[in-house]
Design a protein around this nucleic acid. Sequence first.
DNA 1: TATTGTTATACTCTATAACTATA
DNA 2: TATAGTTATAGAGTATAACAATA
Lengths: 145, 145
Amino acid sequence: MVKKSLETATADLVQAIGLLVRRVRAAGGVQEVSWSQTSVMKRIAASGPATIADLARAESVKPQSMGTTVAALEEMGFVERKPHPTDGRQMMIELTPKGAAELKRTVDAKRAWLLHAISQLDASDQQTLFAAEEIIRRLAERDAV
Amino acid sequence: MVKKSLETATADLVQAIGLLVRRVRAAGGVQEVSWSQTSVMKRIAASGPATIADLARAESVKPQSMGTTVAALEEMGFVERKPHPTDGRQMMIELTPKGAAELKRTVDAKRAWLLHAISQLDASDQQTLFAAEEIIRRLAERDAV
DNA sequence: TATTGTTATACTCTATAACTATA
DNA sequence: TATAGTTATAGAGTATAACAATA
């Protein structure tokens, strides 16, 4: 096979990711917690309470969008807003015990299909996939403003 | 490092993909052609004219959603609807020369950031990423109805 | 009856703009 | 002035429901 150009390979990667995202969505049915919401909960669980602005930067969305995401999580009782101890403008977003429990059910119905599909890959493919995960994460965090 | 469970690794992969998708979107600014639209054009370019129903199945969306996507591409002059030769119900979606030209500009402004980021990875990381692309594509095509 | 496609409507995620409160 | 957050509004992408035309 002729080696793809970097441009072609990148375009193919973007397409493949889009296909997988839609495939997972199609398999998901009604979702209690969205990808964005889960990502925020995972982040708070890993790094501790954070402000809306911090979360927005980390997740590459605008603060207004993160406000919506956090409000939805708050509505479900998965996070709480606490006033910042010294800066009256900021709100610290904390994970509630209910949110931590929700997060523990790491793979919810939405991701059951993907888990099953990955579990049927051979060990080598799984290894490649999870090695790529680390690279994808590094790319996503590149130049995060 | 302790080996992650498959559940944890899958959840981390989902999060990483979500982060990258948002990161690319944030870098993109105004986009002429969306991920979904590009994916459809790539598919027609690779496999030839297809019906709305075929495209919907392949892209894991509902026919109504694919109708919207195709209508947008048609509006931009990138695809054309042709009546099916024998089945009066079906419409064959074909790529126009304008669409093919658009597709050749494989990496548009939206993906320039990603191309640049990937170009700065070392060769080994690039290889892992593109090996994963093939696996991701296989996953996405699994059980496609 | 089953399939293809269209139209109408709604929901999720994110964006921009305009505002208030605090630093 | 600059930053953190909120409220209002809009757009893209997808979904469900109801329908018409054809097989």
